[in-house]
């Protein structure tokens, strides 16, 4: 059951990624990214990380994807299908590079590296007394105890990044 679900969502991710690699329309690529991120959140649930799945939906599908689509709207010359919005260059060397990277990664980590690992469905249930690692309760507890300093630093970091982005995207005539 888990395997069939994984194969289904992985196929969706593969199709969306292949479509993004093919299309020259940035809006279409953005919508393909929507399906990809959604299927990825489903895979996080399969891996037993529910909180990360929800964060993926809120941060990526709700935030980053929206930002990317705004970026397309603000910078593309035309949004229609008539002309390609982005050119491509050096496709074949890049395809060779990507294929080489894929093969290199698979060769560097052969399956027997993962042999000692328990199947995911069992390992997720291996802690009977406390909620398993992906549950929101365990995540919140961990965030406010062991990971408190990175949590606070991440908050300040986000504030700085947002102020910086707002400052950078001001109209240049307003800058002194």
């Amino acid at each position: 059951m888990l395997e069939a679900l994984f194969i289904g969502f992985a196929t969706l991710i593969g199709l969306a990624a292949a479509f993004m690699a093919r299309t020259r329309n940035l809006v279409h690529a953005g919508f393909a990214l929507f399906f990809l991120l959604f299927a990825q959140a489903a895979l996080y649930v399969l891996a037993g990380a529910e909180f990360t799945a929800i964060a993926q939906l809120v941060v990526y599908v709700g935030g980053v994807l929206l930002l990317v689509l705004y970026g397309v709207m603000l910078t593309a010359r035309s949004l229609g299908d008539a002309e390609p919005q982005t050119g491509v260059f050096q496709q074949w060397p890049a395809a060779l590079l990507a294929l080489g990277l894929f093969i290199l990664l698979l060769a560097a980590f052969p399956p027997h590296v993962f042999e000692r690992t328990a199947p995911i469905a069992q390992s997720a249930r291996s802690l009977p007394s406390i909620p398993h690692a992906g549950a929101a309760e365990a995540t919140g507890f961990e965030l406010l105890t062991g990971w408190l300093l990175p949590f606070e630093v991440a908050g300040v970091f986000l504030l700085v990044a947002l102020i910086g982005a707002a400052y950078l995207s001001r109209h240049s005539s307003e800058t002194p």
Partner: peptide, 14 residues
């Protein structure tokens, strides 16, 4: 590898 391919081949910054 798909991401690397996209980032290397595309002309538009987005």
């Amino acid at each position: 590898s798909t991401g690397v391919y996209l980032a290397v081949t595309r002309r538009h910054a987005v």
